[in-house]
Structure formats: structure tokens, C-alpha cells
């Protein structure tokens, strides 16, 4: 893997730090008029998601991380692994529960996800920002409860539970923002 000099630092660059792949979130050039120049960066660990501050002496070089973001179609889960297919090469990849994480709550066959590959293997999976899922179970809204914004829990076909407005019924398809896990709207099925 290529290495990068600090003068090539910019947000989005993937580098190796202490054996883990990181992405640069922010890069700031710092130099006292009469002193050594530094690059102060915020980096996010691609395995844990944690953001940390690090400073490099300007001119130093850092090993690049073999990380790629690839669009993949979700195929199925066998309970232990989640299987995806690269949209362009048709190559299949299996991701474990750590890589899929919270995204597993929203994945439905055929959905296209952003899969981060590290050394060729899935490191993390981001569900599409919006997904449309069917409600498999939800109690009817209590009559007379017309308070603005009142909600009730609903279980989705993927097993996830979200809060929905009282007028939403079992069997309906709804749109959800996966970044917040919130109900967005009802989907009228053609």
C-alpha cells in the first residue's frame, strides 16, 4: 500500500494508525512562526467509529490503508453472516455481525448498501439512508387518544421496532430514516 506525506492529508484519506484503518475527518496545518510545523488531524477509527485527535510532524509519511467503499446488494443472512454482492463485479462478500452492526435492523433483500472493504473483507456496512419496510405487528391506536404526535410501537419485517403515529396499521409499508431510526412517512403501495 502506498504511503502518504502529511502534505497530502485531506479529509476522507484512509491511513493506518497503530495497526487499525482510520479515515481523516479534519486536517489542520499548525506552525509556530519559529518552530516545527505539524498537521493536527481528527481521525475516525473505521473499526470502532471512535474519533481521536492526533498530530503529525509535517513532512512525515504514514502508511495508507487498503480501504474501499463499494456499493453492494444485500442478498441474505444465514444467521451468522450477511451476504452481499458487488454491483459491478458480481463478486460475493460475507460480513459478520460486527461489520454489519446496527445496519442489520434495516436490511431487506435487494437493498443496495455501502460496504467498506478493508484488505478485501467487509469492515462495515451502512444501510441506505431511507428504507421501506412492512409492519408485521402493531396494536391498533387507542380510540380517543388524539394528542398531537402520539405514537405507538410497531415491529417491522426485519424484526426492528420503531415508533409510528397512531393511524398507521399492521400490514402497511412505511419509510424510515436509518440514520435516526425514525418513521418518516407511509408508503402507498402501487
Amino acid at each position: 500500500m502506498a504511503s502518504y506525506n502529511t502534505n497530502e492529508f485531506k479529509s476522507g484519506l484512509k491511513i493506518m494508525l497503530d495497526g487499525d484503518p482510520y479515515t481523516i475527518v479534519e486536517n489542520e496545518f499548525v506552525k509556530p512562526g519559529k518552530g516545527q510545523a505539524f498537521n493536527r488531524v481528527k481521525v475516525r477509527n473505521l473499526k470502532t467509529g471512535r474519533v481521536v485527535d492526533r498530530t503529525f510532524k509535517s513532512g512525515d509519511s504514514v502508511e495508507g490503508a487498503d480501504v474501499m467503499e463499494v456499493e453492494m446488494q444485500y442478498l441474505y443472512s444465514d444467521g451468522e453472516q450477511w451476504h452481499f454482492m458487488d454491483q459491478t463485479t458480481y463478486e460475493q462478500h460475507a460480513a459478520d455481525a460486527t461489520a454489519v452492526g446496527e445496519s442489520s435492523k434495516w436490511l431487506k433483500d435487494q437493498d443496495v448498501c455501502q460496504v467498506t472493504l478493508y484488505n478485501g473483507a467487509p469492515l462495515s456496512v451502512s444501510a441506505p439512508n431511507f428504507v421501506e419496510l412492512k409492519i408485521t405487528q402493531s396494536d391498533p391506536g387507542v380510540k380517543g387518544d388524539t394528542a398531537q404526535g402520539a405514537t405507538k410501537p410497531a415491529t417491522l419485517e426485519t424484526g426492528a421496532t420503531v415508533k409510528v403515529p397512531l393511524f398507521i396499521e399492521e400490514g402497511e409499508v412505511i419509510k424510515i430514516d436509518t440514520r435516526t431510526g425514525e418513521y418518516v412517512s407511509r408508503v402507498k403501495e402501487g
Binding site: 505539524f38 498530530t55 512525515d60 504514514v62
Partner: peptide, 24 residues
């Protein structure tokens, strides 16, 4: 303070880093 020290650094360079960090 988060100085990455894969490459060699002199005492003077570290002082510059610490001072710049504290100024910030």
C-alpha cells in the same frame, strides 16, 4: 496530547508541539 511519533523527533520539536498544543 496525541503526538504521533513513528518518525524520530528531537526534544526541540516536541517542545514546539507541546507549546502549540497549549496555546490552542
Amino acid at each position: 496530547y496525541g503526538l504521533q511519533q513513528d518518525q524520530a523527533m528531537s526534544h526541540a520539536q516536541m517542545v514546539d508541539f507541546v507549546c502549540a498544543y497549549l496555546v490552542d
